[in-house]
Nucleic acid binder design. Structure first.
Lengths: 202, 202
DNA sequence: CGCTTGACTATACGATCGTGTAGTAGTTTG
DNA sequence: CAAACTACTACACGATCGTATAGTCAAGCG
């Protein structure tokens, strides 16, 4: 059961269409008429259900955030906190994440709030790490941004690896690559020392 | 010397204003009239110099790409390939990167081409690593996307750590955090094994 | 039955969009 | 000096935007 039961009515279809087009074309780039057409309804019905474009957007924000938290809880229940915090990549989340980033870039408070909650959770997670980063807050913030960033550039990453990252095969490569990045030290201690010296000089 | 010499004329001011507003509001969200006002010229002059909004955008794409490559070369010359490939974060690049990502998300071929070049360079870099990732291509693609992602969510990361990541202090925390993420293994070998088993089951 | 209510469509409104055209001031060029 | 060119502004055009209004249709209910 992927969605709530009574979620196939016109209101839900409009919301889904809005999230799709907002993601693909940006908030300003997706018109209410286009969204209505995508949902198979008149543009007047969009206004009837949501009042304004801004209100429609906020409804999408709240829905996406709720679904993200809901799916996140399910994943922690299934796979444990370590798995969830390290990868936090699940195919179901993909459209939600891409939408939320688009909305965040255009100044959504709801989406930004969700991001900050993710940073909070990530900061807690750092306490379970063997070697602690010196700046937990910055570590968690950058990590969260990096994980989201992969999905911002979904099309570009897909093009780079030659297959859609939403496909089972592409997603597997994506997950493994992220795991490699997060678990294999990128520099030898010597390189790290050299880099540290360089930083001090500049 | 930060910029070419004759770069203060109206044409350059329009281009800079366009990059600023495209970044802040998205391509569709920034009108030619707004861009002209930001540059302190008439909207007709924008058309005179660039012909159309699409052509203006492509001019911005090319300029941003050129500057990125130029700055990248300077950084390699100054600090060496290891430093450049691991962090690839320089304050000067920030506005260029944020613009290019915006443009990439709205389907810019030039920006996508630059991303693919970054992936190519990153893939070469993986050959200098001690422990090789199994899938170099995916590794480089995900790494490039992650590094870009931090700048997509610039405002959100800044909010999370309590200071602007463009400030010297915030930028230093950002760089150190990225370095920690890339050099400190996030999981113990035991956790990694557990995660591997979990993945096989699902 | 008549009446209300909610889902839905059709159509019209100002505003703003990208674009096109005409024209001016200043410099260059033959 | 006149012609040509360049940088620039002013203004008008259709199209499309978000929004508003009026009306249709079916279901529920006294």
């Amino acid at each position: 059961m992927d969605r709530p039961a009574d979620d196939l009515n016109a209101r839900a279809r409009i919301r889904d269409a809005a999230m799709k087009l907002f993601t693909e074309r940006g908030i300003e780039g997706a018109s209410i008429r286009d969204i209505a057409a995508e949902a198979g309804v008149s543009s007047g019905l969009v206004r009837h259900h949501f009042g304004s474009k801004q209100a429609l957007r906020e409804a999408c924000d709240h829905y996406a955030k709720e679904r993200m938290l809901q799916i996140g809880e399910e994943l922690v229940f299934q796979g444990g906190a370590a798995h969830t915090n390290v990868t936090t990549m699940h195919p179901i989340m993909l459209p939600l994440q891409t939408y939320l980033i688009r909305s965040m870039m255009d100044g959504s408070e709801t989406a930004t709030a969700l991001f900050l909650e993710m940073v909070d959770a990530g900061e807690e997670f750092t306490k379970t790490l063997g070697t602690a980063p010196s700046d937990r807050r910055a570590y968690a913030a950058v990590l969260a941004a990096m994980k989201m960033g992969v999905f911002v550039l979904r099309d570009q990453v897909s093009k780079a690896i030659g297959e859609d990252i939403a496909s089972p095969s592409g997603y597997a490569r994506l997950t493994q690559a992220a795991l490699d990045i997060f678990t294999i030290p990128m520099l030898t201690p010597e390189q790290l020392e050299q880099l540290r010296k360089y930083s001090e000089e500049h």
